[in-house]
């Protein structure tokens, strides 16, 4: 009923007479110019006629004697399979669902779950971009370059110094006799060099 009322209003809004044709004027701002179509009597008249005929026939069949609940439709027998088809809307809805809508849903889910979320959001952004950054930061720079590279190098230098000094400590034992021996050895070497030369 509401739809019927609204379609009356909608039709009336654009009646092709002066003062009406409101829709045309409303769109003028964006469309710039709207042709005011003349009333096409053939199309309008024919469809009105057909509609009136249909109303008359349906009144003949159903209007005079309303159907009881459960009573068979008087048209079921004479129309046969046409009636069954019409009753099920020619299975258009079912066919439409199977051919178009189910596919639409499938593609939607695929785009949303696989492409947008698992591939683009989780894999590319979280794993590739953020993951690579983390890997570069934690593994490459922090662990390999910083801890195992630069740190290790300088720690190694420290270790080397430590070992060298441990070795040298044996010579620096604080006994005057060992130092005197070293001086004696040095004197012998220098004197020997001078003598041989």
């Amino acid at each position: 009923m509401v739809l019927a009322g609204l379609s009356l209003l909608g039709g009336a809004l654009n009646l092709p007479f002066d003062g009406f044709h409101t829709l045309g004027h409303w769109l003028e701002h964006t469309l710039e110019e709207v042709e005011a179509l003349p009333l096409d009597l053939e199309v309008a008249g024919l469809s009105t006629l057909l509609a009136l005929l249909a109303i008359f026939f349906s009144w003949l069949i159903y209007g005079r004697k309303p159907l009881e609940a459960g009573q068979k439709d008087p048209l079921k027998k004479p129309l046969g399979f046409i009636f069954t088809g019409m009753e099920n809307k020619w299975f258009v809805d079912e066919g439409y669902w199977a051919v178009f809508l189910d596919r639409y849903v499938d593609i939607g889910r695929f785009l949303a779950d696989v492409i947008d979320w698992r591939f683009w959001h989780d894999w590319f952004h979280d794993k590739v971009i953020a993951g690579t950054y983390n890997w570069l930061s934690r593994t490459v720079l922090n662990l390999r370059v910083d801890q195992q590279g630069i740190d290790a190098f300088f720690n190694g230098l420290g270790e080397l110094t430590k070992r060298t000094s441990t070795g040298l400590r044996r010579w620096q034992n604080g006994f005057v006799r060992s130092y005197a021996l070293a001086v004696l050895l040095g004197v012998v070497v220098i004197l020997g060099y001078l003598l041989i030369k």
Binding site: G108, R109, L111, A112, D113, D116
Partner: peptide, 10 residues
């Protein structure tokens, strides 16, 4: 198109 399609599956 993509936004509308992905919206529908949420």
């Amino acid at each position: 198109i993509y936004g509308a399609w992905v919206s529908y599956a949420q």
